[in-house]
């Protein structure tokens, strides 16, 4: 395994303009996430958790500081290159799943592969593998509304996984699920980190969910408070 951290934030700052006012959800944040780590982020509402995830996922760009992921400073990438980079390096898991309602589970998972040059057969194999990994190979042809919340979230995880990115980011992935469904999603994330070497950054409000991670960080007013290693 490569010893350098997968994610390296150095003095990462994000400003937003709200009219005349300037908001700074992230203030000179430093963070290193080793490869394969499952990191949980907690913090009060408005503390900048989603903002940080969006920067790491390459859908937003920092105002200042460096953001090096897998050896590449992604704040320097052009918009087009950044899209390409996202497709290959990150899978994003949302609180509300954000599956496309008219597409089946299979078709939703296939979405990230449509832009690649895989053959139809390779695509099918990858989609089926991803769905098997999340335990939904028998629900392939169901539409999102025919699935439970927990199943929808697992389809969304399969979609995040299908292009085999090294990094997964999840914004309150269990926030909308009941206890059992949440537990199975967390177990799945744990497996992905431990058995498949995925680096995971997960935002959560639920201390129980945070326990599934290797490490927990608290964010407050755009700054990291303390760091504690959780017992594995």
């Amino acid at each position: 395994m490569n010893a350098s951290p997968l994610i390296h934030c150095h003095h990462l700052t994000k400003h937003y303009r709200k009219g005349k006012q300037q908001v700074t959800p992230l203030q000179a944040l430093d963070l290193k996430v080793p490869r394969g780590e499952f990191l949980a982020l907690m913090g009060p509402s408005g503390s900048g958790k989603t903002t940080l995830l969006n920067l790491i996922a390459g859908i937003d760009s920092p105002s200042e500081g460096e953001l090096i992921i897998d050896g590449q400073d992604i704040s320097q990438l052009s918009r087009g290159k950044l899209s390409r980079w996202r497709a290959q390096h990150v899978g994003y898991i949302f609180q509300l799943y954000h599956l496309i309602p008219v597409l089946s589970a299979y078709e939703n998972v296939e979405l990230p592969l449509l832009l690649d040059s895989f053959s139809g057969r390779e695509r099918r194999e990858r989609v089926e593998l991803a769905l098997r990994l999340v335990g939904l190979e028998d629900r392939m042809h169901h539409k999102p509304k025919e699935l439970s919340g927990g199943q929808e979230q697992r389809v969304a995880i399969a979609r995040a996984l299908v292009a085999d990115p090294p990094l997964l980011v999840a914004d309150e992935p269990t926030g909308d699920l009941d206890r059992d469904a949440a537990a199975s999603v967390l177990q799945l994330l744990q497996e992905l980190s431990r058995e498949h070497g995925k680096t995971i950054v997960m935002v959560t409000h639920d201390p129980k969910a945070a326990e599934a991670a290797d490490r927990l960080l608290h964010l407050e007013k755009g700054k990291l408070l303390e760091s504690e290693a959780l017992p594995a």
């Binding site: 996922a57 899209s83 994003y92 496309i100 832009l115």
Partner: peptide, 14 residues
């Protein structure tokens, strides 16, 4: 709007 933003997040270029 959201669907398109999700596609962009998945790596779809504009």
């Amino acid at each position: 709007v959201k669907e398109n933003a999700v596609l962009r997040t998945l790596g779809y270029p504009a």
